[in-house]
Amino acid sequence: MSGITRWIALWLCAIVLITNSGIAQERTAVKQGFELSANSGKKILLIRPKVSVGEQSTGGLFEPNADWTDKARKNLDAALFKKQGALGNTVLVSPEAYGDQALVSEEYTNLFGAVASAVVNYQFFVGNRLPTKKRDNKAGVFDWSLGEGVRNIPGAQGADYALFIYNKDAYGSTGRKLLQIAAALGPGLAVKSGEHLGYAGLVDLKTGELLWLNADAAMGGDVREIDGAEKRVGQLLEEFPGSVEAVEKAKQP
């Protein structure tokens, strides 16, 4: 009897924890007043995506894997190239940059990752919001920025918006998976194995304001495989403003 009761209690805990973790998952936000229609004549600069793939150690640390990252980068680049035509507006691929110019672009991509992470943690995750932003949140204000320095990104002069993509995949190691099973069967703790973060964001290249963000802390698709990378890109650019998909969705009653 005590065994059954214990199992019921642990399952209840697990269900609650899983349900609660879902709060921080996929969300999309648009800056108030921002609209981008298809074929608007606006130009979107596609910034080289940040891709890091590795393993999550038993202790939960991220251990990068150069081979996986290289494969994922190629797969994601190809998937993005295929998807460009469906985005509804002209997409310019960021020019090949060298030295300091390349570093500027990379640093802004990392800043985008930090801003997106703050949005996910402190705006999308309702229970964790910052008290000073409560009024904004009640009014549905989405006000985040990368700063006006985005104008210095190579290729920014010929475009209106920049599309940033940030991907981090940590596949659970064998040790981590065993820990997950042992923790669930033993003390009934919910240990997460693997992390699949993905952020896509559209930024105004004149003001640096974040206009649209799609963020998911549990993305699907194995980016090390061609099909998986296509699925990932599809998820990242779901409902991208002005895209074929967004236009079709808007037409639905």
Binding site: S2, R6, L10, L12, P131, G188
Partner: peptide, 25 residues
């Protein structure tokens, strides 16, 4: 054992429901 398990469950539900774990000041 049963008492401890239910206490654990109640604490788990209460903390998640209240959002107290994540509330910033």
């Amino acid at each position: 054992v049963i008492r401890n398990t239910w206490v654990l469950t109640a604490l788990c539900l209460a903390t998640v429901a209240s959002g107290a774990v994540h509330a910033n000041a």
